[in-house]
């Protein structure tokens, strides 16, 4: 797998898409901070109001992050099928599980790097404009920040895992883009529909987007939900990767 990761490194360093994605992760927090300069911010509405709440940049930009990451993954994996370059690897006797896990690892790594950049820049820019401040009701900030960041990151990585599965099944950048977008919309915004019902309400919170879009991570009352979010994220990663690998092993490569 180390060999495959080395090959990915050569490709990624020359990939414009990687730099575009990282560029977006740089621009978004700076733009949002500058936009917030002249207004008085309310935490419930804006999520990030100062340097301390900058740790929640992932919550504030959940939808944007998912769209950016899903688009990158669709191209990153879809093009291997479209260019036929996947044949070069698999015909060398590399196991499909290794290949799948390499792609998952690289996609996750890029998402983590992007999110770290976005969060760090969010904290710095909001601190410089609004001061570091505090998260209301939180006494041990570092413990809170670690838990909130870790939980949000896992929620995003669970989606990365789903997008990787979709891309391996779609075998085309365009088709993968469409399905990933539909999945994000359906499980994110569609979850609101289930929330309105009494009997199906529980289904909502088995989808990671529901937590991303409908939870307030700065609300001390919701911190107790973090373990459940972590569980759902880990289950999503394990189940989607297992299904993805099993299906990929049965896929004929044209």
């Amino acid at each position: 797998m180390f060999n495959l990761l080395t090959a990915e490194k050569i490709k990624l360093l020359r990939s414009k898409k990687v730099w575009i994605v990282l560029g977006l992760f740089v621009i978004i927090p700076i733009y949002q901070a500058l936009e917030s300069k002249s207004s008085s911010l309310k935490q419930v509405l804006e999520t990030v109001v100062n340097g301390a709440t900058g740790i929640l940049m992932m919550e504030k930009n959940g939808f944007a992050i998912l769209l950016i990451v899903s688009a990158f993954i669709s191209f990153f994996i879809g093009e291997e099928f479209q260019n036929g370059t996947i044949r070069n690897v698999l015909s060398l006797g590399r196991s499909r599980t290794q290949y799948y896990l390499t792609k998952l690892a690289v996609a996750s790594l890029l998402a983590v790097v992007g999110i770290l950049i976005m969060t760090a820049l969010g904290i710095v820019t909001y601190t410089s404009l609004h001061g570091f401040g505090e998260v209301a009701g939180i006494h041990d900030y570092f413990s809170y920040a670690f838990k909130a960041f870790g939980t949000l990151l896992l929620l995003i990585l669970a989606n990365v895992s789903i997008y990787v599965m979709i891309s391996f099944q779609s075998k085309s950048s365009a088709v993968s883009l469409i399905w990933s977008f539909l999945y994000t919309i359906a499980t994110g915004f569609g979850a609101g529909i289930f929330l309105q019902t009494e009997h199906f309400k529980f289904i909502t919170f088995w989808f990671t987007e529901a937590f991303l879009f409908y939870s307030d991570f700065a609300n001390p009352a919701e911190i107790s939900l973090y373990p459940r979010m972590v569980l759902v994220s880990l289950l999503t990663i394990v189940i989607s990767s297992t299904i993805g690998i099993l299906l990929f092993k049965r896929t004929d490569i044209k």
């Binding site: 490709k11 020359r14 414009k16 260019n83 036929g84 370059t85 044949r87 070069n88 015909s91």
Partner: peptide
């Protein structure tokens, strides 16, 4: 083994 099946499979960029 080495292979080149149908169209050349290369990274265009």
């Amino acid at each position: 083994m080495g292979q080149s099946i149908e169209t050349p499979a290369l990274y265009p960029d």
